[in-house]
Every structure is written in structure tokens, then in C-alpha cells.
């Protein structure tokens, strides 16, 4: 397997995988998409198709994983959200109870688009400083407009800079994952024989809190927590 495909080769693999999907040869379709991903030529479109193939095949865990990865990389899209809804409808688990309140920063990060915020900050920040320099160079009487514009740009740059810092912090500390195992037991302690608290099933989105040995502590959207085997979940 070569480490890189030319754009034409990648396109050929992609089209053949699509054709296999149309013929309901899901194994061949999956192989094609995974080949592209393994060679670093994936992207949200390939991930979306892979997730849809898994979903058609009935592999709920890997379907949700690929679709969530597609959303993480490419943002929301109508077809992506529709197939995610189908996957959620097929899930065995129904998380009941009050949704656990997220910390402030993760909520802020979830409500804002990281790349947009980052590019906004970068643009306004650089432009504001350019105007400051210009202000110094200009004589009296011509500085006012430049000064006002610079202040406005700083007014945008500073909050967006804080949002970028929030995204960076949340990205480094919050880890979301999808349950892949058909049935995953969450235990009270990170030991194989520990008391079982609850069971989750393929496709459920959980949060990884900490890891020890071959166990990870997972938290459900309603705040339920337990230790599950690491290989039963995959990080988005």
C-alpha cells in the first residue's frame, strides 16, 4: 500500500467505494473509504460516507463515530445531521434524567465555531496593530478615523482571542468518545470484577474523564459515571 494517492487515484478509489455502496457491497465500500483515511486523504466527505456505510450495515458504533468525526472536521451539514438522527433513533440506550450541566467553558466552546473564531481573532488583531502604526505615522487632524477604527478592531479581537483560548483549553481537556462494543459494562471501580453500575450499548456518545490501566471513566450526558474497558470506546 502506497503512502500517498494522487488526486486522481484518490478520486478513483472514492468513486469505486461509492459504486460498491450503491450495489450494497458495504464491505468493499468500507474498505475503499478506510483506505483513503489511512493514507491521510480523508476529510469530512469520506468520513461521512464511511459513517453512512456503517449505518447501512448496522454497525451503529462505528457509524456514529465516523459521522461525529465528520462533523468535527467539517462542521454541521443537513445530510450529516439527518444520518446522525437515524443513528440516534436506532440506539438502544435512552439517557433519562436531567442533563448534567456542563462547565462554562465547554458550553462556550460548543456554542461557537472554533475555526471562525480563530480566523476572526487573527484578522482583527493584525489589522488593529497595523492601524496603530498608521496612527503614529499620521499627523494631527488625520488620526481620528484611524484611531476609532483601531479601537473597534481591538474590541473584536480581544473577545475573539478569549474564545480561541477557550477552544484550545477545551480541546486539550475535554475528550468525547463513542461506544463501539455492542454492550459495555460500566463498573464502580476500574477492575474487571468490580460491581456493575449500568450498561451502555453501541453508538452512545460519552465523555472520557480519566484513564487508568485498561479502564476509562466515562460520563453519560445525564451525569452517570462508571469505569468501562478502554477498547469498548473510541475517541472522536
Amino acid at each position: 500500500m502506497s503512502g500517498y494517492y494522487t488526486p486522481e487515484e484518490a478520486q478513483d478509489i472514492f468513486l469505486k467505494a461509492n459504486e460498491a455502496y450503491a450495489n450494497e457491497d458495504y464491505a468493499a465500500a468500507k474498505e475503499g473509504y478506510e483506505k483513503l483515511l489511512a493514507n491521510g486523504q480523508g476529510g469530512p466527505d469520506v468520513l461521512y460516507n464511511l459513517g453512512t456505510t456503517h449505518l447501512a450495515q448496522g454497525d451503529l458504533g462505528r457509524a456514529v463515530l465516523a459521522l461525529e468525526q465528520a462533523r468535527k472536521e467539517g462542521g454541521q451539514a443537513p445530510d450529516l445531521e439527518a444520518n446522525l438522527s437515524v443513528a440516534r433513533a436506532r440506539q438502544v440506550d435512552k439517557v433519562v434524567g436531567a442533563t448534567a450541566e456542563d462547565a462554562f467553558l465547554p458550553r462556550v466552546a460548543a456554542a461557537t465555531d472554533g475555526p471562525v473564531v480563530a480566523w476572526t481573532f487573527l484578522g482583527t488583531w493584525v489589522a488593529a496593530f497595523v492601524l496603530v502604526l498608521l496612527w503614529r505615522l499620521l499627523g494631527r487632524g488625520r488620526r481620528t478615523a484611524v484611531g476609532v477604527l483601531a479601537v473597534l478592531l481591538f474590541a473584536v479581537a480581544v473577545p475573539s482571542g478569549l474564545l480561541v483560548a477557550t477552544h484550545a483549553y477545551v480541546g486539550a481537556t475535554v475528550h468525547e468518545a463513542v461506544v463501539l462494543a455492542p454492550t459495555l459494562v460500566a463498573r464502580e471501580l476500574p477492575q474487571p470484577g468490580a460491581r456493575s453500575i449500568f450498561e451502555v450499548h453501541a453508538g452512545l456518545k460519552v465523555r472520557l474523564l480519566e484513564e487508568t490501566g485498561r479502564f476509562v471513566r466515562i460520563r453519560l450526558p445525564n451525569g452517570l459515571e462508571g469505569w468501562a474497558e478502554r477498547e469498548g470506546v473510541a475517541e472522536i
Binding site: F14, G42, G43, V46, T52, F129, V132
Partner: peptide, 30 residues
């Protein structure tokens, strides 16, 4: 199920803007 996408933009796994090499120098330069 919605159908698969027939066109794709092939790209490596995305790295956040703030993790790219140019970001910090661009912020500090002004």
C-alpha cells in the same frame, strides 16, 4: 438514510487553527 456524497475534498485530518505553526507568531508579531 441520506445518500453518500458523490464528491469529496480529500484532506488530512484537520488541525485547529490555533495549533498550526503560523498562528502564535502571527499573534505576537504586531
Amino acid at each position: 438514510l441520506r445518500p453518500v456524497r458523490y464528491q469529496a475534498r480529500f484532506e488530512a485530518p484537520g488541525v485547529p487553527v490555533w495549533k498550526r505553526g503560523f498562528f502564535v507568531p502571527t499573534v505576537l508579531a504586531p
